[in-house]
Amino acid sequence: MIDFARNVRLWFAPQEISEEGGTPDYRFSLANERTFLAWLRTALALIGGGFAVDQFLPDLRWAWRVGLALALLAAGVMCSLRAVNHWVRCERAMRQGKDLPVSRFPALLSIAVAIVAVAMVIVVLAGWEG
C-alpha cells in the first residue's frame, strides 16, 4: 500500500523518476510507452463497450443494462489507472536495473471480461425469449 502511494506520487513527479538509477536505452522506454498506450486503448474499448451496452441493448431490463454498463465502465477505469501505475513501475525497474514487475491484473481482467461476456449471452437469450 505504501508502495502504491509512492507510485501515485510519481505519476505527477517526473523529476523524481529521473533521479533514480541510470537512464535505460530509449528504445526500452518507448516500448514501455507503447505497452502503456495499448492498455489505455483497452480501457477506452471497455468504456466504449459500456456506452454500447447502454445504447444498443435498449430492450433489456433497466437493472441488467445499467449493471452491465457500469461493470464495463468500472473495468475501463481500473484498466486505465493500472496502465499508468504499471508504466511507472516498469520505468523505475528499468532505471534501477531490477526485474520488471509481475502482475496478476491481465488474468483478472480476462476473467472479468469473460464473466461480462457470459452475462451478455444469458441476458440477450433471456431477453429474446421474454
Binding site: F12, S80, W87, E91
Partner: peptide
C-alpha cells in the same frame, strides 16, 4: 521518454470519460 505527468493526464482524461458515461 514520456513524462509521467503526460501519462497521468491521458489516464485522467480516460477516467473522466468513464465517469461521464456512468
Amino acid at each position: 521518454p514520456l513524462a509521467p505527468r503526460h501519462a497521468t493526464a491521458a489516464v485522467l482524461c480516460t477516467v473522466a470519460v468513464a465517469v461521464c458515461a456512468a
